[in-house]
Write a protein that binds this DNA or RNA. Structure first.
Lengths: 192, 192
DNA sequence: CGGTCTCTTGACGGAGTTCAAAGCTAGTGG
DNA sequence: CCACTAGCTTTGAACTCCGTCAAGAGACCG
């Protein structure tokens, strides 16, 4: 498990064993069971999280209770709510474990410390956020310009591993359509 | 004009006059006329841009020619296409001046140099991207859960200055609806 | 003063939503 | 290990909102 983190880091940033060791030593290990909430509206997000195993989702709700999923993250991916983390302000989001999940956590403070010792880390974390921004913009663009069917196909193509591990109503929630509509698209495809 | 930048920087990051001077000295000044393209699909984005005066938009098109606006930026705001800038890959976006616009430009390389001399800059630029991500997520959420009318009202409330400087068809493009629908919403409000 | 840009309007059709019901599956506790 | 329940998925009917197409009027610029 700790080895997964080593492997991951080596593939993505050029760090020596000593630096990795340092990073790991500053992290808090956490196990979250399926359905456990890691963040809720009103909380302040205190950590950057790295997922060793399992899966989490980032979502928001409306007053009527409807859920709208912003992001999924699985093994070897990062998750946080940067707005709340950076400013220490209450978040509007939930982060929920969708499976039993193992995580490494760093507080903002510890991560800043690490970034001083390991300067590449700063650039790396900026790149992660930039990638998230690019993804989210891509998503806005798709939502505005593509049909539900295209977006559904794209989702399966781009995130097959996520798709196979979540119920359809979450796919619908991510795509921004009703479950009914998603079923309709699926049925139309079966008949072809 | 150069003073605007000084004022802006002092309000937003804690830099001394010397650092500001340094930043400014590394920048390239540019004037873009209305409708000038600062970035086009296939280009590699080479700069972080700071807007001294005027206004730009970031948008994408589909094969059918339809335009979908991701972002507007006005005086004292930053604009770039981080995905292309960071990786040196061709962009899918346009950046266009909507008015005659004065800009300061830094190449990735120069900005990195600056960040070494002025460490706060790194954190600051990460915060800007994080803010953009938060905005874009907010927008995904709104698109999925709010009515066109609510989104229109939100837009006017949140970006009155942008709203007053662009034609309605761009508002529609930003909101992800047809001009027809936007007009319909506006008429319904007039009659109230 | 001609042309481009901007905004509105009407008719029509299609895609997505809500509400409601029901079958199927998988996990859990006794 | 079986029975039961909760969660997942599909389906149908009725309706509503939004998009496309097409036309026209007003405003602004050169």
């Amino acid at each position: 498990m700790a080895d997964d983190f080593n492997t991951y880091i080596k593939r993505n940033i050029n760090l020596n064993d000593e630096d990795i060791q340092l990073m790991h030593s500053m992290a808090l290990e956490k196990k979250a069971h399926r359905r456990e909430m890691l963040l809720q509206p009103g909380d302040v997000c205190r950590h950057k999280m790295f997922i060793l195993s399992g899966m989490v989702r980032l979502y928001r709700t409306r007053e009527d209770g409807s859920e709208h999923i912003m992001h999924f993250a699985t093994e070897n991916e990062w998750m946080t709510e940067p707005e709340s983390l950076n400013h220490g302000t209450p978040t509007a989001y939930y982060i929920e474990a969708l499976e039993d999940t193992e995580l490494l956590l760093w507080t903002k403070r510890d991560f800043t410390q690490l970034s001083i010792a390991i300067p590449q880390l700063k650039t790396y974390s900026e790149n992660i956020i930039a990638k998230n921004l690019a993804m989210t913009r891509e998503r806005v663009f798709n939502t505005m310009s593509a049909t539900v069917e295209e977006r559904y196909d794209d989702f399966i193509r781009d995130y097959p591993d996520v798709f196979n591990r979540i119920p359809l109503h979450m796919v619908a929630s991510y795509l921004g359509v009703s479950l009914k509509t998603l079923t309709r698209v699926r049925q139309a495809q079966v008949k072809r």
